[in-house]
Design a protein around this nucleic acid. Structure first.
Length: 881
RNA sequence: GGGCAAUUAGCUCAGUUGGUUAGAGCGCAUGCCUCACAUGCAUGAGGUCAGGGGUUCGAUUCCCUUAUUGCCCACCA
């Protein structure tokens, strides 16, 4: 950029982004310091799948974190943004299995150990991908502390937690109904089951009552499970069936006899009011089974194929069995009728396979005791959700939480630290592998084959990554973290679990604030998904538009917590903004080649104005960042740069820089220009780190990097109410003149003559100070400034702005009719406003109840409009004679 | 069946303690290659703030209600 001749008028992010990231990382600017007593700021990054690729959701999430991190770092705080990745149990294992399948191998062919070697190899090959992508985005996280959920430290924490919870009785093993995915061949937790409405059928089946001519008709959506029925339930107060309660039924297609029971769960209104009860294959039936001590008969195996308890249907897939059974029921006269019925079937979140509820021996976390403090911490404000509405979502879930099934029938993950003695019934839970059974001394110990739910380790992330269970410096210094930034889709999966884990093991919340953002949708407002093929690769966007542009686009144009549409037009708009900054900076640098510090001269009105506007903007930006209104903060900077700094200040400062005025004036202009641009780059840096660093480095500065430059929070001393008011008058007048020229078709190149009549001395003073600006920015050859002149210029078009009558002289060019029409229109507008204000100001309620300053303001406005109207009327009158 | 969000200019969205003639970007119209920028400059047109009630001196903003859309949660066979 030093050699202006070679500098493109178009900003090319590709040329600077990589360079700066490498410099930053090498210099260690991202690394957290633990050396001050000053305030500190910490974030743990939600760990993406270790072998995954960056998507726009990650891009948004990490941009928000990076903005907060860079902002706090610039404020001189000890700042830690701790990155890492997740082993993503099912997802990663499934991908490696798919890969193996191409070689014609299954994981069983390899065996557990060899298979895990393959997964680690896979991780080694693809594990660096997403972290490289995060670097492209500009993420300023402390890579020296990068963690992985399956690394040694995290594994240590997982074992510690499991053993402690086990010893406390909060982890237990038992036969309960769980969600089984027949495709993934593992259990999944309740929140991993998705319910999609599904057009299906409902069958009415006749169950004959023993020793009677009577029968009960039950309705079911899953006739194949009837082979596992161990009762039929009716409501205890259902008059239709009261006399049948306690009697027996003959279960069709079998030779079994089952009881009729009464249970409140049954809805009298639904179907026939009689429900078949299959405790081994339905969660509600399971619960009822426990209440009534019913036998559990499992009729489906782990492939969702009918098993030996299914008699002649054994070996049939569940859907095939359904068809057979319905056909047989019909043939035997048990089928009453079939109806269309929509119901929500549970599907696996990963593969969409319909879940099979099954009774199985699994490990669970007892949630009630853990949930209680986690509810309290949010209720009493130790943890705050932003936006606040997510508090209710969190509490609603936490208050109704059920026990968490944590064992998974996978190989890739944290192995459950439990061993079973083969010689006695002893179950040993320990961090280290025991050599002999503590009860019988046998050496025949076998470890539980299952691994833990991936989210079990993620739940510990805020402290496991800081070295827990060791009491490390980092942990003492940076825990609890300041804020957690994440998408609202994982509040239950992750946020909730971190909260109860933190409270249980650290005796403190894991974070103070939870900043929730929405989803990135496509241009039509749909979720991005593989099946729709509407996904957008953030890396491609970065390559085309630059990371700064992607970042800025992702955080503007919406409100926290709401979804965001990804639109190319907005990307282009932000690219143009980056280009605008680039060119404003080129302009500045071209005029700073002989820059030297100079404090001698007086600031002009424009100087005072831009300093005031900058500091006010900086103050507002700071305020908004503190409330997580990052989009609003970014918007304020955008408007300052484009609408104030570029559109007005640069234009006003040109004559001085071009040396048309004094040398001292030029030096002052250089100083204010350089300072304001530099500080603006500091203000913008968290949002657009690359562009701002590139420019900042070329401006007069102190320090090594904009990353560590002081944050401009806005100083009161430089806020100048008077300068802003005076500039407002000047800008209004200039805009009015431009408007007149445009309407009268007087091009800017054609120098014009304008007469301005000020209403009072203050206004006149402002106009006098800004005479130069008027000449240059309104394209004037001459401007006459008058105070309250009764003499009005002839042959002119007129506009009235607050405090000033504007006359654009147009000898012989004034179209009287057109001018009159223009004035009439303006008059109409004024009259409308005056009427509105008069009505308001004659309202006693308003006068007595509204705050006095509001009333004063309205009166002021009315006066202003009346003066304007007078001026317009006068003008109209003069045109008529 | 509950809950949440959204409904503002042609399109996508801001509008934060209720108080200027309701804003921006894109698009549109008109005029400009003005020595930082045509990824630009200047000017302009365009809105019953979803409908209906209420509270208030005053409502896009607060409350109720209706409608439409989207999302989340829920054990109805």
């Amino acid at each position: 950029m030093k050699d202006e001749q070679n500098i493109s008028t178009v900003y090319e992010p590709q040329k600077v982004e990589k360079k700066w990231y490498q410099i930053w990382e090498k210099a260690g600017y991202f690394e957290a310091k633990v050396d001050r007593e000053a305030s500190r700021f910490s974030i743990v990054m939600p760990p993406p799948n270790v072998t995954g690729s960056l998507h726009l959701g990650h891009a948004l999430d990490n941009t928000l974190q990076d903005i907060l991190t860079r902002w706090h770092r610039m404020q001189g705080e000890d700042t830690l943004w701790l990155p890492g990745t997740d082993h993503a149990g099912i997802a990663t294992q499934a991908r490696v299995e798919e890969h193996l399948a191409k070689e014609g191998l299954s994981k069983e062919d390899l065996g557990r150990e060899k298979f895990l070697e393959r997964v680690w190899a896979w991780k080694k090959q693809y594990g660096g991908h997403i972290t490289t992508q995060l670097r492209k985005l500009g993420a300023s996280c402390d890579w020296s502390r990068e963690r992985f959920t399956l690394d040694e430290g995290c594994s240590e924490a997982v074992k510690e937690v499991f053993v402690r919870l086990y010893e406390k009785g909060l982890i237990y093993q038992g036969n309960y109904i769980i969600n089984w995915c027949p495709k993934c061949q593992t259990t999944i937790s309740d929140i991993e089951v998705e319910h999609e409405p599904h057009a299906g059928k409902i069958w009415h089946i006749r169950y004959p009552v023993m020793d009677s001519d009577e029968e009960l008709i039950v309705v079911t959506t899953r006739p194949e499970t009837m082979l596992g029925d161990t009762a039929v339930a009716v409501h205890p107060e259902d008059e239709r069936y009261r006399k049948l309660i306690g009697k027996k039924l003959r279960l069709p297609l079998t030779d079994r006899v089952i009881p009729i029971i009464a249970d409140d769960y049954v809805d009298k209104e639904f179907g026939t009011g009689a429900v078949k009860v299959t405790p081994a294959h339905d969660p509600n039936d399971f619960a009822m089974g426990l209440r009534h001590n019913l036998e559990q008969i499992t009729v489906l195996d782990r492939q969702a194929v009918m098993n030996e308890h299914a008699g002649k249907y054994a070996g049939l897939d569940r859907y095939e069995a359904r068809r057979q059974i319905v056909a047989d029921l019909e043939q035997l006269g048990f089928l009453v009728k079939v109806e269309e019925h929509e119901n929500a079937v549970g599907q696996c979140y990963r593969c969409d396979t319909v879940i099979e509820p099954m009774v199985s021996k699994q490990w669970f976390v007892k949630m009630k005791p853990l949930a209680e403090p986690a509810i309290q911490a949010v209720k009493d404000g130790r943890i705050r959700f932003v936006p606040e509405r997510f508090t209710k979502i969190y509490l609603g879930w936490m208050e109704n939480i059920r026990d968490w099934c944590i064992s998974r029938q996978l190989w890739w993950g944290h192995r459950i630290p439990v061993w079973y003695c083969q010689d006695c019934d002893k179950v040993i839970c320990a961090k280290e592998e025991p050599q002999v059974c503590s009860k019988c001394g046998s050496a025949k110990l076998v470890q539980d084959p299952d691994v833990l739910d991936t989210w079990f380790s993620s739940a510990l992330w805020p402290f496991s990554t800081m070295g827990w269970p060791e009491e490390t410096e980092t942990l003492k210094y940076f825990y609890p973290t300041s804020v957690l930034v994440t998408g609202r889709d994982i509040i239950f999966f992750w946020v909730a679990r971190m909260i109860f884990s933190g409270l249980e093991f650290m005796s403190d919340v894991p974070f103070r604030d939870v900043f929730i953002h929405g989803l990135v949708l496509d241009a039509q407002g749909r979720k991005m998904s593989k099946s729709l093929g509407n996904g957008i690769d953030p890396i491609e966007v970065i390559e085309q538009y630059g990371a700064d542009t992607l970042r800025f686009m992702l955080i503007t144009g919406n409100t926290p917590g709401n979804d965001l549409r990804f639109q190319t037009e907005r990307l282009e708009a932000v690219r143009n903004f980056a280009n605008k900054i680039w060119n404003a900076s080129r302009f500045a640098l071209m005029n700073l080649t002989d820059y030297q510090e100079d404090n001698s001269s007086e600031y002009t009105l424009a100087d005072r104005w831009i300093r005031s506007r900058f500091n006010r903007t900086a103050s507002e930006v700071t305020r908004n960042l503190a409330r997580y209104e990052l989009g609003e903060a970014a918007r304020l900077i955008y408007e300052f740069i484009w609408n104030e700094f570029c559109d007005w200040y640069i234009e006003m400062v040109k004559p001085r820089l071009y040396g048309k005025e004094s040398e001292a004036g030029r030096k002052t202009a250089q100083k204010v220009l350089a300072q304001t641009l530099r500080e603006t780059m500091q203000l913008l840096h968290p949002f657009m780190p690359f562009l701002t660093e590139e420019i900042w480095q070329h401006l007069p500065h102190q320090g090594e990097t904009v990353m560590l430059a002081p944050w401009p929070k806005g100083t009161e001393a430089e806020m100048d109410e008077q300068a802003e008011q005076e500039m407002t008058i000047l800008m209004d007048v200039i805009k009015a003149i431009r408007n007149l020229r445009s309407e009268m078709n007087v091009p800017l190149g054609k120098k014009a003559h304008v007469v301005l009549i000020a209403q009072n001395e203050q206004v006149l003073a402002a106009l006098q100070k800004g005479e130069g600006y008027l000449l240059n920015l309104a394209g004037l050859a001459q401007v006459d400034l008058l105070l309250n002149s009764p003499e009005k210029p002839e042959q002119a078009v007129t506009a009235v702005v607050s405090g000033v009558e504007v006359y654009l002289l147009l000898q012989g060019l004034v179209d009287l009719d057109k001018e009159k029409a223009r004035l009439e229109k303006e008059k109409g507008l004024m009259e409308q406003e005056i009427a509105r204000l008069e009505k308001k100001l004659s309202n006693k309620g308003f006068l007595t109840k509204a705050p006095p300053e509001i009333v004063a303001k309205e009166k002021e406005k009315l006066k202003d409009y009346q003066i304007k109207k007078e001026a317009i009327l006068e003008r109209i009158a003069s045109l008529e004679c």
